[in-house]
């Protein structure tokens, strides 16, 4: 039994490594994807390494409000409270990216579990789980997460959970269809004949082979979670003590006609980040599905 399992593990590992090398080559041949990756690394460096070079406190009033960019030594100007926007972009970026990642993690966890069990067991389990998924597709996502945040208080945790809980349905659908396909494969039958348990089959045999489309979906999820967080903060439903890109936009919004840059700059940062993520996602998709690429 254990011997069979090790063999199966070997088989799946071999598949994973050989396709990994192929995938990397494919990915780096795609100029748009490489550009996206470079952009993403630049943004990460700016957000996480930037504060060491530019040490101004993002919450401190440092100059007159609405100083134009490139004036008085403020590269991106100051906001309605005279705070340095460059510092706010770095601090806010950390929060926006962290919430994006965490919320995507929540939605991928829920989505993969629902999709995996539905696809693996089929029958009544599948019917019930897919009805459950459909139910979440009917709920107007933003309204529902606004209600969750308003009811349970705006904190990083509630915002992250509220985004994750409403956006897992696409992951569940992708996972289910992959499981439906893979569970009929011979190596799964082989593992089953070695009397492997269900959970082992689901998470150790099928899931690793179902990962490519899930990875692509998860990647897009990070981008849409960042947009989601920005929309919530723009509407005033975020932790007021934590700075995020959406928060900068929301708090400067009443003054757009006097100082459009205070709103345009963080919006542009979100745009660039999500753009970079989706370029990388397209590249991953092409690299992971060579058949689609040839078409």
């Amino acid at each position: 039994m254990s011997e069979i399992n090790t063999q199966i593990k070997d088989v799946t590992n071999i598949q994973a490594t050989s396709s990994l090398r192929e995938m990397t080559t494919m990915f780096f041949r795609n100029y748009a994807a490489v550009a996206g990756l470079i952009l993403l690394i630049t943004i990460l460096l700016f957000v996480f390494a930037g504060p060491w070079l530019h040490t101004t406190d993002p919450f401190e009033m440092v100059w007159a409000p609405f100083t134009m960019p490139m004036q008085e030594g403020f590269i991106l100007g100051t906001d309605y409270l005279g705070r340095d926007i460059l510092s706010a972009m770095m601090a806010g970026g950390q929060v926006s990216l962290a919430i994006g990642l965490a919320a995507a993690l929540v939605s991928v966890t829920i989505g993969v579990s629902v999709g995996a069990f539905a696809g693996y067991y089929g029958g009544l389990v599948e019917e019930l789980l897919m009805r459950f998924t459909e139910f979440f597709q009917v709920l107007p996502t933003l309204l529902f997460s606004m209600v969750i945040v308003a009811l349970f208080g705006a904190s990083l945790l509630t915002v992250t959970l509220a985004i994750g809980v409403v956006s897992w349905t696409a992951v569940a659908r992708v996972t289910r269809s992959e499981f439906l396909r893979i569970r009929e494969m011979e190596y799964v039958a082989a593992a089953r004949s070695g009397s492997a348990r269900d959970l082992y089959l689901i998470f150790k045999v099928i899931l690793p082979n179902a990962l490519p489309p899930i990875v692509v979906q998860a990647n897009l999820m990070v981008g849409s979670a960042i947009l989601f967080e920005a929309a919530l903060s723009f509407l005033g439903l975020s932790d007021p003590n934590v700075m995020s890109w959406g928060q900068v936009i929301g708090s400067n919004r009443p003054y757009i006609l006097d100082a459009g840059f205070a709103v345009a700059i963080p919006g542009f940062a979100i745009f660039l980040t999500v753009l970079a993520i989706s370029l990388v996602g397209d590249g991953l998709n092409d690299a992971l599905n060579p058949k689609l690429r040839q078409r």
Binding site: I256, A264, G267, L272, V274
Partner: peptide, 13 residues
Amino acid sequence: LFGFAAPVFWTGI
């Protein structure tokens, strides 16, 4: 690319 990446409120503003 733009339609997916641009926050809708930002486009509006």
